[in-house]
């Protein structure tokens, strides 16, 4: 792992992954010929660009979510099954803030122009993320701390139980109805390219958060301690790192990252207490794709999955039905062919 892998190797893996996910799915439906005919009739540079751009926008969101999951796994070796539900909680926090706490006269604030809309989301994240950070720390301290370092199944079952509790709690409080926030609609139109404002804002926030996470891990001493703990908790411990506190922060960070994803979903899509499952599946696929515990891998994997999904649902007939299948296929394919992920991860140690 220590040697730098040359770039062309990644290109080959990328091509393999694309082919591995895309081709069988395409073949499965209506026959290859029909597919080609349809694809050809639709393809143009402008359209391809649009699909690519949309995929990247979607992938940026996936990356933020997966980064939280990979951080928790990398540092604590815990598979946090409740990650999707933390995201859902974030979405509902946004909902409560926008629809219940914010006076209706101020709703227009978030729909009037792009600047204000970004500001609004920023302000909201500032309120929501510390709360979710504390929530994550609470979960770590009360539920996971007693079992961390033990058999891997125990924390997995605990987080699974937590996810059921969260889903059912939110169903009983908010019902299983779908909710949506009447956030700024409309699109940024650049030539033939149309990028929806909510998605543009989402990707901007994702990029800022991702940059923040990278900067934190790379440059701050706490970030270095987090990485050190991820690489070897025992050594970090006897080198003076308070590993228990690192676990606490890490779970807080991971939870806040999931909640960031939730907030960004809430401004663009409808959500219900049961949406967590959609995103946890994709997050698993992404961290397997990029390499477990590898942040750059989560970023690359997220964007890659976003683009792959976009291309599948665009070019493949009945593609909407196959998006989820794509994530599953990628997951299984990567585990078989390159279990450590594209960019390498904890599995190869």
């Amino acid at each position: 792992m220590a040697e730098r892998t040359p770039g062309w190797v990644y290109a080959v893996y990328l091509a393999l992954a694309l082919a591995g996910a895309g081709l069988p799915l395409a073949l499965a439906w209506e026959g290859f010929v029909g597919w080609l005919a349809q694809a050809r009739s639709m393809t143009s540079l402008a359209v391809t660009l649009q699909v690519l751009a949309s995929g990247i926008l979607q992938g940026g969101l996936y990356a933020v979510i997966a980064m939280g999951l990979t951080m928790i796994f990398g540092v604590m070796r815990i598979i946090n099954v409740a990650h999707g539900e933390f995201l859902m909680v974030g979405a509902y926090m946004a909902f409560v803030f926008f629809m219940m706490l914010l006076p209706e006269e101020l709703h227009s604030l978030f729909t009037s122009n792009l600047g204000m809309a970004i500001l609004g989301v920023g302000v909201f994240l500032l309120i929501c993320l510390p709360l979710m950070f504390l929530f994550g720390m609470g979960v770590q301290r009360l539920l996971l701390n007693p079992v961390v370092g033990g058999p891997e199944l125990t924390p997995l079952l605990i987080t699974f139980g937590l996810s059921l509790i969260l889903i059912n709690t939110f169903i009983s409080v908010f019902s299983s109805d779908f909710r949506a926030i009447p956030y700024m609609s409309g699109a940024l139109v650049v030539g033939n390219l149309a990028l929806g404002y909510p998605q543009v804002i989402s990707v901007a926030v994702s990029a800022a958060v991702t940059g923040g996470v990278f900067g934190f891990l790379k440059f701050s001493r706490l970030g270095k301690a987090v990485r050190a703990t991820a690489q070897n908790a025992d050594v970090a411990m006897v080198c003076g790192v308070n590993v228990e506190r690192i676990y606490l922060y890490t779970f807080g960070f991971g939870t806040a990252l999931a909640a960031t994803g939730g907030v960004l979903i809430s401004i663009q899509l409808a959500f219900s207490p049961e949406i967590g499952g959609i995103y946890i599946l994709r997050s698993f696929a992404i961290i397997i794709l990029g390499g477990r515990g590898n942040y750059l891998g989560a970023l690359a994997g997220g964007i890659l999955l976003g683009v792959i999904e976009g291309f599948i649902s665009f070019f493949v007939s009945q593609g909407s039905q196959l998006q989820e299948l794509a994530a599953y296929t990628l997951l299984v394919f990567m585990l078989l062919v390159r279990p450590q992920g594209l960019l390498g991860g904890i599995a190869d140690e």
Binding site: K224, A236, G240, V241
Partner: peptide, 21 residues
């Protein structure tokens, strides 16, 4: 440690800075 346990994916300098308090 008997078996070397440096933080392999951090630079030499980072290995030292990470454990400072």
């Amino acid at each position: 440690f008997q078996i070397i346990r440096v933080f392999r994916e951090m630079t030499a300098l980072e290995n030292l800075v990470a454990v400072s308090r």
